[in-house]
């Protein structure tokens, strides 16, 4: 009898890139739901816009590169990038702002570098930074969280949709009445205005650790992230690294002078810290590859986040921190090569 020859191993991998991406998306569901609960339907519209433009841009680039769009779209990485980008945006964001970031993320950050696997920078963060620079005013439009005792005007789902499409508020509302500074903004301007951290923390927008609502979303992000760790989709090194890098300086400064420094808990639960630790910095393509390398990479991101929040011009520093560390990845990889078994301890690492 004749048989077909193949190459060993004859057992095939059970894992696939699209499975990884799917699990990441599923892990984000609780956090998105919480976001909708506290800040309205805006994030859903942002996700839809980002997905349409990321997928569309990727399809066009693939066509321009002479390859089938389905080849790239099937792995789902563009959708993950789109959702992460949308997650970083205020819930009131006009569609062209989101679209600009999405197209930049796909065309420049991803495909100009060669597509999946070759991109140096995290596409979502690259797209976000472009938005931040091109549309700074739009990035300040955060609505207040929907908590019973906070009496701010809220847009309903239809009004939010209208804003996403046109960039205009209903005639009865103004930006002053719907938008509020983010907790990190409050902290930054407050500290600059000689308020003590404790006074700032007493503001009605503040919760137990970070901003109200915000910290709840943070909890759900962490739940999703820990789920990914348990399923071994991500490993602990990067999230722990980010935590160490951010919390160690935050704790030291807080202990030295609690009056003019936010608490470590505030840093952990504010802004995009947790999203970064579990979902953004863990993007394998733009992260370091060895375990030691990943720890270093994570710590670097954490330190930079702290430094930017404390000394930089922006209230949050996640995107800049991630992009900076992206650039250092080749260097980190170079110096954290694990010693090959049998090469002895004296071999370079």
């Amino acid at each position: 009898m004749k048989f077909e020859r193949r190459e060993a191993p004859y057992i095939r991998p059970a894992n696939s890139v699209s499975l990884v991406m799917l699990q990441v998306l599923v892990a984000l569901v609780p956090a998105v739901a919480a976001h909708v609960w506290f800040f309205g339907a805006g994030i859903l519209y942002n996700i839809v816009v980002a997905v349409i433009f990321c997928a569309g841009a990727e399809a066009l680039v693939m066509r321009a590169r002479g390859r089938a769009p389905a080849e790239a779209l099937a792995d789902g990485s563009a959708i993950v990038a789109a959702v992460l980008l949308a997650f970083a945006l205020p819930s009131l964001t006009p569609w062209w702002v989101t679209a600009t970031g999405a197209v930049f993320a796909m065309v420049v950050a991803k495909h100009l570098y060669g597509g999946l696997g070759y991109n140096l920078f995290n596409p979502a963060m690259a797209g976000y930074v472009v938005i931040l620079i091109a549309f700074p005013a739009d990035m300040a439009l955060w609505v207040a969280p929907r908590m019973g005792d906070l009496d701010y005007q809220h847009l309903n789902a239809l009004q939010t949709l209208w804003f996403t499409l046109s960039g205009e508020l209903p005639s009865a509302m103004s930006f002053d009445t719907v938008s509020r500074a983010t907790p990190l903004d409050l902290m930054k301007t407050g500290l600059a205005g000689m308020q003590t951290a404790a006074e700032i923390r007493a503001e009605p927008l503040m919760g137990d650790f970070g901003g109200r609502g915000w910290e709840w979303i943070g909890n759900f992000i962490a739940i999703g992230g820990i789920g990914l760790m348990l399923r071994k989709v991500i490993r602990w090194h990067i999230p722990v690294g980010v935590g160490i890098g951010l919390l160690v300086p935050a704790t030291i400064m807080y202990m030295i002078d609690a009056g003019s420094h936010a608490s470590p808990g505030f840093h952990l639960f504010s802004g995009a810290t947790l999203l970064c630790a579990f979902f953004i910095a863990t993007d394998p393509v733009s992260a370091a590859t060895s375990t030691t390398g990943r720890l270093i990479y994570g710590i670097g991101i954490g330190l930079l986040i702290y430094a930017i929040r404390r000394f930089g011009a922006y209230a949050d520093g996640v995107a800049f921190a991630v992009l900076t560390m992206n650039m250092l990845v080749p260097l980190i990889d170079r110096y954290t090569r694990p010693p090959i078994v049998g090469h002895g301890p004296e071999q370079p690492g």
């Binding site: 792995d75 597509g115 490993r235 375990t291 694990p338």
Partner: peptide, 11 residues
């Protein structure tokens, strides 16, 4: 697909 640098192989 291209390598996504997940590092699973190394681990």
């Amino acid at each position: 697909l291209p390598c996504i640098r997940c590092g699973d192989c190394a681990s």
